[in-house]
Amino acid sequence: SLPPLPPQLKAIQHYLKTATEHDKRDPVVSYYCRLYALQNGMEIDKKSPECRVFHVTLMDYLEKVKKETDSEAVHNEVVGQAHMENYALKVFLYADNEDRASRFNKNVVKSFYTAGMLFDTLSVFGELSEDIEKNRKYAKWKAAYIHRCLKNGETPV
C-alpha cells in the first residue's frame, strides 16, 4: 500500500484512483495509470522527502508488477499504447453513444471523465495525436457540462 498522498501531489490523485478501479478489471490500464501518475508526480516534486518516499514506494510497486506479469502490453510499450488507446476509445464511445441517445446520468459523466483521464495517460507514450487531443478535450468538457446540467436540473443539449 502507498503512503498517504502528499498534498503537493494532489493532481495525480485521480489517476491513482482510476488505477485502483481497474486493478481487477484491466491490470494493464492500472499499470499505465500508475506509471503516468509516477511520471507526473516526479515532475511536480521529487525533492521533498515525503514526495520521494511516495515515488519510491510507487516505483517499487510498478517494478514488482512488471517482474511478476507476463502481459505483453506491460512489457512492450508499443503494445501497451495500442491497448490503452483502444480502452480509452471504448470508454469514450460508450459515453458518446449514451450522450447522443440522450441518456444522461452519473454513469455517463463518470465515463466521459474517465475517458478524458485515460487520454491524458497516453502522453506517457509521447505527444498525443490531434484526434486524441480533440477527444481528450471533448470528453473533459462533456463530463463537466453534463455534470453541471444534472446538478442544476437542466437537460443537456
Binding site: L35, L38, Q39, M42, K46, K47, R52, H55, V56, M59, L62, E63, K66, K67, H75, E77
Partner: peptide
Amino acid sequence: PSTVGQSTAAASGEQDELSQRLAKLRQM
C-alpha cells in the same frame, strides 16, 4: 557551505536515482 554543497549533491543524486529507476522500469 560544504554541508550545503554535500546536501545538494546528495539530493540531486537521489533525484537522479529516481529518474534512472523510472527509465530502467520502462526498459525492463
